[in-house]
Write a protein that binds this DNA or RNA. Sequence first.
DNA 1: TTGTACGCGTTATCAC
DNA 2: GTGATAACGCGTACAA
Lengths: 330, 330
Amino acid sequence: MPTISDVAKLSGLSKATVSRVINNHPYIAKEKRERVEKAMKELGYVPNPSARRLRGSLTSTIGVIVPRIVNPFFSYLVNAIEQAAFKNNYQVLIFQSNENKDKEIYFLNLLKNRQVDGIVMTSIENDWDVIEPYTQYGPIVLCNEYLNKSNVPMVRLDQVKGAYIGTKHLIDKGHTKIAYCTGGLFAEDGKDKDRNKGYQQALEEAGLTLNPNWIFINKHTTEDGKKVMKQMMAMNDKPTAIFTGSDEIAAGVIIEAKEHGLKVPEDIAVIGFDDQPAAEMMEPKLTTIRQPINDLGEKSVEQLISLMNHKEAAVENVELPVELLVRDST
Amino acid sequence: MPTISDVAKLSGLSKATVSRVINNHPYIAKEKRERVEKAMKELGYVPNPSARRLRGSLTSTIGVIVPRIVNPFFSYLVNAIEQAAFKNNYQVLIFQSNENKDKEIYFLNLLKNRQVDGIVMTSIENDWDVIEPYTQYGPIVLCNEYLNKSNVPMVRLDQVKGAYIGTKHLIDKGHTKIAYCTGGLFAEDGKDKDRNKGYQQALEEAGLTLNPNWIFINKHTTEDGKKVMKQMMAMNDKPTAIFTGSDEIAAGVIIEAKEHGLKVPEDIAVIGFDDQPAAEMMEPKLTTIRQPINDLGEKSVEQLISLMNHKEAAVENVELPVELLVRDST
DNA sequence: TTGTACGCGTTATCAC
DNA sequence: GTGATAACGCGTACAA
């Protein structure tokens, strides 16, 4: 592994000059620049990022923290971020927090140590109070997450509207008994609170009252969806439609419904969330809410880069629109 | 960002002693060790990985190169690798090559620069001749890839058997006209050559002759699957079954078949590959070949770690078994 | 058992 | 325009 000194020696110039060539400084004699470049090529020289970082210069590297990479939503988001970063000559480090607080802290420390110039967080495990101190070492952008603190840049989706248009769509189809799944606890304040609001808003507007029996909390997976369907079938007063909160849950609901001879959407209408690839593979094809994942990634990177370049760039909050995709399950 | 000197100052000891504490050296007085630990906590000290790497010590970091993270096969594989690495106190850096040769080289250079101690490659874009030189800087393990060079550790699946048991299953079901999709060119030597072999072997054993019209090359996506189905319908002599090579392609075939009123498996039997989550969500549920992705990741990491620890550990080639999952599409 | 001093590869400062 | 040189934070040989 050749170093800058090797290049200097081979080209018969000083380390300083070589460094200047590497970093595109002005005022270098054409002839010397070429000698350096030739030497670099000859030795297969590559600058050592550790040394650069240690020296204090920027690293052209940003980090992305995701909870679980196997979740398609996040793998698509990571991809979008990676593409956008690459366009801007940034390299991406991907971290999986596994919803673990300690791992999250570990990754944030990479900011402290200049391993990365900035971080995109697509989930938050720790309280903001413990994350906040890290912002002094470099910018942190919240992507798809949302906090009631004012000084954090956030890029996110209009979740209220997502749940609202989904529920509204079911109402427009004539449904009045609409079940609802949430990944959280259906609390005023907490996970998925925006979606809860959208759901309730649509109900209210239509003059429908919320039936607590039809609210399913802490649901995430296809298995959860199956369980939900089982529970609904055991009810005396059964819902005729369900807003599931994710395509996975929707899949479980549909599988279980068919298992028992129920027809979708005739007996039970189902609406998903995310528009994952599987949504189109199901039978019936799933009506769902599409989230502009690519925009989400792009805006986050833009935001981060501008923050990295001008320390005091305006902290901007971006809210992206979601979209209803009507297919065959409603 | 406090440094080792700050800790030394605060604890009233030397940098050397602090360093020893950090690295768990023997022969440190209990009392001093505690003073150091107290100081570290007090300052929120975290060692700077760049400095460590520069100094030449190992980094407890391994890199994983994947072609596209949005491909569920790879996101699950990355997850498996990450979990296994974490268990062994290794950190994982994930790189997406996007099937780009230059990006691959860029990542391999991180090995040269000691950014990572070793690399798991789950795909290979460049010729081995250009990758090989990098092995002198640290171990490279091929995971799910396969090369006819003897000195590279490889952990992979028995693809011959995968295609064989899939095709055999269709034959056992009474099919004699079995189409086949490959991601490659159906050449003797090249991408997917093992699967090609398995397919042909099963055919031969059953005394069936291969019909070139039923071989579809360069297929990868759900869209490709739809096209394949269209092509098959336009044939005079139509296959009654198809080995698709991936669950995505299988999904496309099934969607298109149903679109045209064909019944699966009565009119056309379909078998996938991978056992992705979507396989169970489809209607009919997809018969497919399950690959032991977790084992694949675990073995690769094991292999890599043993190579990193004992320079001259035995280069081991592991071949993992695949499994047929019979569901409703055949 | 502890401390001193050097070097890892790079870039910025200063002097020429 | 170019070249010495110090400094970034750390780990280790050597000395004590």
